[in-house]
Design a protein around this nucleic acid. Structure first.
Lengths: 137, 137
DNA sequence: CTACATTTGCATCATTGTTGCATTTGAAGT
DNA sequence: ACTTCAAATGCAACAATGATGCAAATGTAG
């Protein structure tokens, strides 16, 4: 299992409290987490701006990625499987429990773009119910 | 050509200034428009809250739809071609000129969801360059 | 023309994204 | 272990956006 320190060192980032906190939370979770979900029971452990800037830094370094959902909310997830080099970013969002999962490599997409248009990236969000919410309903 | 009044009457909505303004702007444009793009040269024609509530009403009635882009910005477009009944909502976003176009019916998408997951809606945003921006670069 | 529900404008608040700046801190070198 | 300094943090502050309550204005049915 890769450690938080290894991730930070590999990207020439200092080993600071906020970075370690965010990365360890994301490593613990398979799902993507919002800022509040990340903070969890420690909402004031770090300043709001520090949190914001740390997430931005981690994103710029290609360690995490930002997922914007259809309701304008934002979640963050670790880049596993070299997602940073992929053109396709697809996620599942459960409408009931709000959980967000990465679906990298499990989606196919084709678009017939207007003439001369160029495609760089594709962002997909599938809304629906996750297995847990299907079973308990 | 369908008129603003016909749209409003068909949905049991009163023929008010803000509604007529927004709908006529959207009818004029093929592209999706942000709140500021809609307001254009008349930023204070209506109160901000009125604008906000009118967009919400039009969306709830299925007359327009909201497009959330990857940078958290929001645009609005008329529901043409009975888009309100479709499961797939795909849009193109030009990274250079910021124009957003609906690609309804021109995209195919398949996802291999985890076991027992249920899909309701699929939101796709393709980022890239539009034809105009490709030519002038 | 009247009546009344709907819509609007205004005040106000919450959340989120963002910047500048002074202080603190990680880690490299001695 | 100590010094040094760029990098990171905390704080103040501001902008944009989403949202609600309430009084005033307005569309439209009768």
């Amino acid at each position: 299992m890769i450690t938080v320190e290894e991730i930070l060192n590999a990207h020439d980032l200092r080993n600071t409290g906020c970075r370690k906190f965010i990365l360890s939370e994301l490593l613990k979770n398979d799902a993507a987490l919002s800022e509040n979900e990340l903070k969890g029971p420690y909402p004031d452990l770090f300043d709001r701006v520090t949190f914001y800037r740390t997430l931005k830094t981690l994103e710029e370094k290609g360690i995490i990625h930002r997922i914007v959902l259809n309701d304008n909310s934002v979640k963050y997830a670790l880049n596993r499987h070299h997602q940073e080099y992929e053109e396709m970013h697809s996620h599942f969002h459960c409408e009931k429990c709000d959980e967000v999962l990465c679906l990298s490599g499990k989606t196919k997409f084709e678009a017939e773009l207007p003439k001369d248009f160029i495609k760089h990236e594709v962002y997909v969000v599938i809304e629906g119910f996750c297995a847990d919410c299907v079973h308990q309903s």
